[in-house]
């Protein structure tokens, strides 16, 4: 696959061949200067439609792993593939195309507080070039589904933590991503709200979205029979 293909809009429309395996990591390491190893020799495969947990204590490398998958960081060594797409051959300007196929839910939500709930979610579609009545309809549908319809004209800064997290989820899934990455999405929430968020993510997974959820909360993981990638000091402890 040449770089010319990566430059082609057609390629980014249909070009990535997605088989059974959506994501493949081969001996991936990430070392921050001067020599802080955040990840060491991580290898695993993620199948389409899977829901996996990435667990481990703080500093284990969970966020780094998700950032690598999302293209926010580059691995120091090893290889990563999204379908048959080699991350190493991706230029910085192509990363946006890859990110458009994914959704990312941040622990700190990363919402625009001065904009309304509707505008924040709409933005997720607008950057993909979907706008107008089609986009409005999709936004309204997802807000209704996540119980935010009544809040759609409210500014984000006036919402509670749980509501903000639901807006963040709405913004990520309104784009109908192939892969949803969630970095400690329940980190700032009480147990009841955490269960609610997990339930929403499981519903989305049941509809075909592949989910990678990073959490340090073992109790959330224990209750669910999902594949777990456990990290400890940057090493794969258990998969």
């Amino acid at each position: 696959m040449g770089d010319l293909q990566y430059n082609s809009p057609k390629f980014w429309g249909k070009g990535i061949a997605l088989g059974r395996v959506l994501l493949r990591l081969e001996k991936v390491s990430k070392i921050y200067p001067p020599s802080i190893a955040a990840l060491k020799n991580i290898s695993f495969e993620l199948e389409r439609g899977e829901f996996i947990f990435v667990t481990g204590p703080s500093g284990a490398g969970k966020s780094t792993l998700l950032k690598l998958i999302f293209g926010l960081e580059r691995p120091s060594s090893g290889r990563m593939f999204y379908g048959d797409l080699d991350y190493a051959r991706l230029h910085r300007r192509h990363l946006v195309h890859l990110r458009r196929r994914m959704g990312f839910i941040f622990q700190d939500f990363r919402l625009l507080p001065e904009k309304t709930v509707f505008e924040n979610v709409y933005l997720g579609l607008e950057v993909l070039g979907v706008s107008g009545s089609v986009a409005r309809e999709r936004v309204e549908r997802i807000l209704k589904r996540l119980g935010l319809a009544a809040r759609q004209n409210q500014k984000v800064k006036t919402l509670s933590g749980g509501e903000m997290q639901r807006v963040a989820i709405a913004r990520a899934v309104v784009r109908e991503p192939e892969l949803l990455l969630a970095d400690e999405p329940t980190g700032n929430l009480d147990p009841e709200r955490s269960q609610e968020i997990l339930r929403i993510l499981e519903e989305l997974n049941a509809e075909g979205i592949t989910v990678v959820l990073a959490t340090h909360d073992e109790s959330l993981v224990r209750e669910r029979h999902r594949r777990v990638i456990a990290l400890q000091e940057g090493r794969l402890f258990h998969a």
């Binding site: 999302f70 946006v96 458009r100």
Partner: peptide, 16 residues
């Protein structure tokens, strides 16, 4: 800055 970072995380191109 935050707005620019968020937009880029959503897949917006630098041009957009």
């Amino acid at each position: 800055r935050e707005e620019i970072e968020i937009l880029s995380l959503l897949g917006a191109s630098p041009g957009y």
